[in-house]
Amino acid sequence: MPFATTLAVNDQRLAAIAQQDARKDRAFAWLTGLAAWSVFFTLLATIGTMFWGGREAFSTFGFGFITSSTWDPVNLQFGAFVPIYGTLVTSVIALVIAVPISFGIAVFLTELAPSWMRRPVGTAIELLAGIPSIVYGMWGLFVLVPFLGEHVFPWVDANLGQLWLIGPVFRGPPLGVGMGTAGLVLAIMVIPFIASVLREVFLSVPSQLKESAYALGSTTTEVVWHIVLPYTRSASIGAIFLGLGRALGETMAVTFVLGNSFNFSPSLLDPGTSITATIANEFAEASISPLYESSLIALAFVLFMVVLAVLIPAKLMLRQLAKRAGT
């Protein structure tokens, strides 16, 4: 009898432990799930907060908030055309410069460089991608602005500025600050970023494909053009879009070198402003008027929408490659 009792007691104890474990299991799953969904809700809440904060500006100015170029904090008239234009133009300049160079770096690192060089240089590029943007901004302000103002912009103004049709884009005072400078700093900042993503993308091409093409007598250029690029097409575009998203939302690298001017000018040599620079520069003063603050938050909402419109296709295209690679 004592033996059976022990068994029964044991059974009871085991059942209690199992029950406890089941409870802990549920709690653990619930806690981790909560953390995961909090990520989801952070994004929704951010969009919601930006929209709610900007509602006063949207309802006051309506569609004119985006199309009007009057930004007048004194009379509380806010039209965001100039900052929006500045954000788009600087980002486009950045991409025009950065995409071919990042492409060159990625090809160099995956196809050209001797193998002892690939890893260290690849790591260096990734490290550079992690340097805080304020360092790029400071370098732009203290090194690039004086250099461009003294040596490059006067030449651009004198030569390109006189050309028919495109002249106005290159005409202006040689201040050194301006849209062109901001675009250049942004380009330098996104180069390591795009290059390291592109490198990763290029590395995912199965070596059998490349080796077959080489065996048939293809040159390196032909392998890149006919094998690597078609295989990674959507992911490469995704990498570029990712860089664009980064350039659009970048704050510190452009704030220093844009010149903070709300006068619209087509010239790349004239000072301008961007969405992020406007918010960073004026937010401290904006608390004087709810409409002012609301306008700045509305700007952030516009920026976020644009960035989302760029990021979502970018991530989808990068994801396609990951699926094909079977990871």
Binding site: T46, L242, G245, R246, L248, G249, T251, T276, I279
Partner: peptide, 8 residues
């Protein structure tokens, strides 16, 4: 969220 602008 990983690529969202930090200013936002």
């Amino acid at each position: 969220l990983l690529s969202a602008p930090s200013i936002v």
